[in-house]
Amino acid sequence: MPRPLRLAASPLWWTAVLFVALLLAMPHTGALFHAAFPAAKPPVYARASFVELFLSQAGIVATASATASALGIAVAVFVTRPAGRDFRAIADALATIGQTFPPAAVLALAVPALGFGPRPTVVALFLYGLLPIVENAIAGLETVPGAVREAAAGMGMTGWQVLARVELPLAAPVILAGIRVSVTIGIGTATIGSTVGALTLGTPIFDGLAGNKVPLVLQGAILVALFAIVTDMAFARLERRLRPPGAAR
């Protein structure tokens, strides 16, 4: 298929277009929401633009996830080397136990340490986001067969070269799956972060819930749901790209 046609046939593409279109069109839907919910005033969230809310939330999630990915992969690399072997079990245990902690609780507990605003949300997202990344990166690095590593070392590669050119590329799809989980949870938790002062697409939802204004809840909910879905679809596509050709799913 030629490239433009392939783009048009991709669900990721048109979901992304729908999301951006709604993000831009939402401020102009006042008449529509007024007709559906005559009692609600204002019919559209107006304290900040939806684009501004989206950019703020995307920035929070991106900052937290990028930091968590860098540190998470570093931890996984350390505990899968001979020097860090001892710490592998405890890193794995921390990642598993930590994930049983409810994200909303982690967020709430970050507030006393950091105060209101975007900071507790970024830190909670970072801490919670580390766990699936560490877990998956350890699993991914350990699925690289020993024979492959030995062959690479036999070709004269140094330890760092084996890691950078063989192990990490082979583990990449599994690591990316961990980052995907982390980002999905991050978007959801960042939405709740508006209760502790972060500016996100969740802000209209909570304003609407507090003032019993259903249109505001809907506007925030639709946009944040689409944001999460588009992001997840983009990760799914990236995962397919990274999988080595011919490898089984």
Binding site: G188, I205, F206, V214, L218, A221, V224, A228, I229, D232
Partner: peptide, 21 residues
């Protein structure tokens, strides 16, 4: 099911308000 799981919890709660009321 995967799509549903992706939607942030508070958004899904919010989306259910209208049909349920």
């Amino acid at each position: 099911l995967n799509l549903l799981q992706t939607i942030p919890s508070i958004a899904l709660f919010g989306l259910l308000i209208v049909p349920l009321s």
